[in-house]
Write a protein that binds this DNA or RNA. Structure first.
Lengths: 349, 349
DNA sequence: ATTAGCACTCGTTCCTCTTGAGTGCCAGCT
DNA sequence: AGCTGGCACTCAAGAGGAACGAGTGCTAAT
């Protein structure tokens, strides 16, 4: 048998045409259709022979005897890796990406969310953006405001132009000026510091000089601690857009499959784990079907690309759709979105 | 024929049992099943006669000759209005509602979002919470922070413990102390004022004394204007949870129906319009099928209840699910959620 | 190596038949 | 008058089977 890797020129060409055709109309492709569309001047019988070889190599298979062939995962893999002819991005799409992702009046969160929704809008599939893993979130400013009795609003601004706010319970009420003093002390001591560091220093501070501090100061340090602790870990680790677009593909016409996918999105855990792996890869990466190691991506593919802040890769974005997707268009869109997002982040400092 | 309204005792009872049965297992109910489950000591033939009456009145109908009967919209209407026996809320559910909705450390947004997600979790359907329409959103505090060149972060705290923030473009850069002064002036002038009012006063202010102000002051007033304008209108008018729960009902097994519904949720417009109407009603309200006037609620019902802040109705919440839903359980849940939400809002001031 | 030809396979569609749940009506019973 | 048993009737759902056609694999000829 031919388990030999050296695929003939013709076989390669036929696989390419077959996959392209199948992506277009979803039905199994027969030898006659192929002989008409391949541009080759050979009969369908010849093509049948070649197809037989391709099947033996596990690149295509027929759902039943009297149907045409459809690509296997392995077939898609080969196609994506070495024969997909990526289409250049359309001008409109490019300008849309640039205009709507960048934007001086946006903070990090908003920029990410634009990227996510554009990605889903252009590809007509579900999109995912993993929120940056900054090692260095630093404190820009902290502010306390009195609310009703015993409640204080803490507002924290980070170097990413992000505003986090949290309501704190305190044992006693503070006046506005007390709070202002507290915030002043805090800002003077910690401005520009890494949030992680601030957190740990506050703990030790409280331990060390407990006796030296008056009761009010203790309260204040405690409040600061709470305010700083709230922020980072609880923030959502990814944002998803356009899940419901997946309803338009017949691949997911059985409700069960669709439900599985939706669940996968809400579970997040596995999703994040998958995306995490892509941080290391350099450019666009494509997971086909269960390659990812997760059964819920049965008939799905995931196309991802990492994005940067400065020189460092800080996150990953991508789209999820049926394995039978227009890779030639999706790949460049994902690629470009990552690039535009990177430059938007960089121009924000 | 009998279009007479006075329904016999027996007919009422049979309708009730029929609807309950149909809600439980979804299949058309025949005369024999009914005669067994109704508790009445009459034969199936007698029941057939009564069912015939019910059909003549448009309360039930059979999908085809040889099937049992299912309730019509009108039948559901009567059932819901005058014979559903609401189940008391389970203790766990009640405490869950109270604990997770109230919570001193939550602001208005968070409280609403808890209500929404609990509602959907308990009923296993999609839930909607319309965000309060406050006439009186007042200014508690404004703060300006310098970002990179020519960009300023405005942080606005309202009387609802909500923090809104927006990045502003300015013609020239401001120092931190300039900004502090500006904020001071602003807070002293406008603290406690209605945001709408602040907005309009800023406009006239700028008009009136343009010449008297120095260039910096003009800039500042303009900034303040932007900061205040951003806030209110853009906020989402409703929050939705658990849409994907609807996938579990066979009523929506045809993708098209489901898609329509999902779209209705994203369109928001019609949804909000419907909910708006419920503000006037006093307690729980049920819309069955297309009663609402929107075709996308074809096989759906919507159960809503208004909630209060103080004595005033400020918003509406509800769930959306198949018409064939367990009204006896859903109605009290929606009712109670509205009540718990009201008291949570009130205890926040 | 390529191809025309042919037998074969198997999903799809359409038809028919059977089954069974459920109805409506009527004649007789209380 | 109201209830009931009996009976003919309807119709969806399911099973079985024939006709069709797209597509294959194999073989013998070029």
């Amino acid at each position: 048998m031919s388990s030999e890797l050296p695929l003939t020129e013709r076989a390669q060409h036929l696989l390419k045409v077959l996959v392209e055709h199948h992506i277009r109309d979803g039905k199994p492709v027969g030898s006659t259709t192929l002989s008409r569309n391949s541009g080759l001047k050979v009969s369908s019988a010849t093509i049948r022979n070649t197809m037989s070889d391709l099947e033996a190599m596990g690149l295509i298979h027929s759902p039943h005897t009297s149907a045409g062939r459809i690509p296997t995962q392995k077939g898609y893999r080969l196609f994506v890796d070495s024969m997909v002819a990526v289409q250049p991005l359309q001008r409109v799409e490019l300008t849309q990406l640039q205009q709507e992702i960048s934007g001086q009046e946006k903070n990090t969160q908003e920029v990410l969310s634009s990227a996510s929704s554009l990605l889903s809008q252009i590809t007509q599939m579900a999109s995912v953006v993993m929120v940056p893993r900054h090692e260095r979130v630093t404190l820009r400013h902290l502010e306390f405001l009195p609310l009703s009795e015993g409640r204080v609003l803490a507002i924290l601004v980070t170097n990413l132009d992000e505003v986090q706010n949290r309501i704190l319970q305190t044992d006693r009420s503070f006046t506005e000026s007390e709070l202002r003093q507290a915030a002043n002390w805090f800002n003077q001591t910690f401005e520009g510091e890494d949030l992680e560091l601030v957190r740990s220093r506050l703990v030790t501070e409280l331990e060390r000089s407990k006796s030296e501090m008056d009761e009010a100061m203790q309260q204040i340090v405690q409040m600061a601690q709470q305010a700083v602790t709230s922020g980072e870990p609880n923030r959502d680790q990814m944002m998803v857009s356009g899940r419901s677009k997946l309803m338009d593909y017949n691949e997911f016409s059985e409700m069960d499959r669709l439900r599985q996918l939706f669940n996968a999105f809400s579970e997040k855990r596995d999703m994040i784990h998958l995306l995490d792996q892509c941080m290391e890869a350099d450019g666009v990466q494509v997971f086909i079907g269960e390659e990812s190691g997760y059964q819920f991506f049965d008939e799905c593919s995931v196309v991802t690309a990492p994005y940067r802040h400065g020189d460092e890769v800080v996150g990953v974005l991508g789209v999820v759709g049926p394995t039978r997707m227009a890779y030639d268009r999706v790949i460049p869109v994902v690629d470009m979105t990552a690039k535009v997002l990177s430059s938007a982040l960089n121009s924000m400092g």
